[in-house]
Computed example of a mutant assay.
Amino acid sequence: MAACRSEDLRLQASSTLSWYRSSDDVERGFCSRCGGNLFWKAAPGIQTFVAAGTLDRPTGLRLAKHIFVGSKSDFYDLTDGLPQEQDG
Rank of each mutant, 00 (worst) to 15 (best):
Q47L: 12
L17C: 03
A52H: 09
T59P: 02
L9I: 07
F49P: 00
S23D: 09
G45E: 04
G53S: 08
G45D: 02
T54L: 10
L11V: 05
A52Y: 04
V26D: 00
L17P: 02
V50S: 06
L55A: 10
S15E: 15
F49Q: 05
G29D: 00
A64L: 09
E7V: 12
L55V: 11
S22K: 04
Q12M: 05
A64N: 14
A43R: 12
K41R: 15
S22W: 05
R10M: 06
L63R: 14
P58V: 08
W19A: 03
S14R: 12
L61G: 10
I67V: 15
R33Q: 13
V69P: 02
L9A: 06
F30A: 00
E7H: 13
P44Q: 07
F49N: 11
I67W: 01
S14Q: 13
S14Y: 05
G53V: 06
S18D: 06
A13D: 15
A51R: 08
I46N: 12
L17V: 07
S32R: 13
S23A: 09
L63A: 14
L17G: 00
C34N: 05
D25A: 10
P58C: 08
G60D: 09
D24G: 05
G29S: 03
R62A: 14
E27C: 10
S23C: 09
C31Q: 02
R10Q: 11
C31L: 04
A51T: 15
C34H: 08
L61P: 03
H66N: 11
L9M: 11
P44V: 09
N37P: 07
L55K: 06
G60S: 10
H66G: 03
T48S: 06
G35P: 04
V26I: 14
V50D: 01
Q12P: 00
T59S: 14
A52G: 06
P44M: 10
G45P: 03
A43W: 07
C31R: 02
A42M: 10
A51I: 10
A64H: 14
R33V: 09
L17N: 01
W40Y: 15
Q12W: 05
K41I: 03
S32G: 12
T59E: 06
A42V: 13
D56I: 04
